[in-house]
């Protein structure tokens, strides 16, 4: 409660005082500093994971790596700031972070009232349910009168209440603030189902002794578009983040990857030539170089490569991409980058 209050207070104050902190354009500040201040959260597998050798990696980390590559041609020029979610927006508003890339849901209130600018979506998440396979449950609609383990103080609690109310069903919540406690309850049979964002469910399931004994139900009961965020008021910086992300999605659609980017420079496809800066001047218009996407692709690869590397079926997280929202629009998903021209 205190934390919620505080963060509300801090964000209000931050919005009120944010203006002077932006006297200088963010890109100029980053260049002068020589590194990008990239805000991530406390380590979370798949999105901003910390390995035992001290390196950060993940879907959201690669957004920052791509930005550092676009600006400095060096994906290592990043200062990672691991900030708790209670103070994430304040830390962005007060100028400590240049970009916030940490599974943050794009919502109307955040976009319009907290002085934030969402620069796109790099992962479409949504709340789902996990149940033991032995229960025989195949759909969330069968979970009437079930006891459900749910984290308190998060939107998951509100989403599940909405879901049950709109389906005229009832449920008994088992709540805890600590995810470890909650998962322990679920594994101990204390509840019939465990609900959380699907990416979180997949990561959790991979830590079970027998992951195959649990299934994630197909229903997605909430929309959680996650993406990088910047401060209001510096549109050029927002453009840089947005078009770096779009470039990675566009590159996958055009079949340009880290492996073939050098050959693609001689491609005759006008879309590829514009993306890689062989034609046109999109990069320089933003204060970057013409070939910024070449740098990005060499450093991190296209969106598909990033997905497979961090959360794809070959990783312990194992979130299948085919047929999900995160597939390209050409493959049944909704990932769609506006044209690079």
């Amino acid at each position: 409660m205190i934390r919620t209050l505080l963060s509300a207070l801090a964000v209000t104050a931050a919005v009120a005082y944010a203006a002077p902190a932006q006297a200088q354009a963010t890109l100029a500040q980053v260049k002068a500093r020589g590194s990008l201040n990239c805000q991530v959260g406390p380590p979370t597998p798949g999105f901003y994971a910390l390995a035992s050798d001290g390196t950060w990696s993940g879907m959201d980390v690669d957004i920052c790596r791509a930005l550092a590559a676009a600006i400095f041609n060096d994906p290592r020029k990043i200062q990672f700031q691991s900030v708790t979610s209670a103070v994430r927006f304040t830390s962005l508003a007060n100028g400590e972070s240049d970009v916030l890339s940490r599974t943050t849901t794009w919502t109307a209130v955040r976009d319009t009232q907290l002085g934030l600018e969402f620069a796109g979506v790099n992962f479409y998440d949504g709340q789902g349910f996990m149940v033991p396979k032995a229960s025989g449950v195949k759909s969330a609609k069968e979970l009437n009168n079930a006891t459900v383990c749910v984290l308190t103080g998060t939107t998951t609690e509100l989403n599940i209440a909405d879901f049950y109310r709109s389906n005229n069903m009832t449920f008994k919540p088992v709540t805890a603030e600590n995810e470890n406690v909650l998962v322990g309850t679920y594994l101990g049979g204390g509840c019939d189902a465990y609900t959380n964002d699907k990416s979180g469910l997949a990561a959790r399931r991979s830590s079970f002794a027998k992951p195959d004994d649990h299934i994630i139900l197909p229903e997605t009961i909430s929309k959680e578009p996650l993406g990088p965020v910047v401060r209001h008021g510096d549109n050029n910086w927002g453009d840089i983040v947005r078009w770096t992300l779009n470039g990675m999605i566009e590159a996958e659609e055009l079949g340009v990857s880290s492996a073939n980017v050098d050959q693609m420079l001689t491609s005759t496809n006008p879309g590829i030539r514009r993306l890689l800066g062989v034609e046109g001047n999109i990069g320089e218009g933003m204060g970057l170089t013409k070939d910024f996407m070449v740098r990005v692709l060499k450093a991190t690869g296209n969106y598909g490569e990033i997905y497979e590397r961090h959360v794809g079926p070959k990783t312990p997280i194992n979130i299948p991409r085919d047929g999900s929202l995160n597939a390209l629009w050409t493959k049944g998903g909704i990932l769609y980058a506006p044209p690079f021209r």
């Binding site: 910390l50 390995a51 035992s52 830590s207 079970f208 990783t315």
Partner: peptide
Amino acid sequence: RAVGQDTLWIGL
């Protein structure tokens, strides 16, 4: 806390 969030040691 970070140990259990390392992709290799997830849940530890």
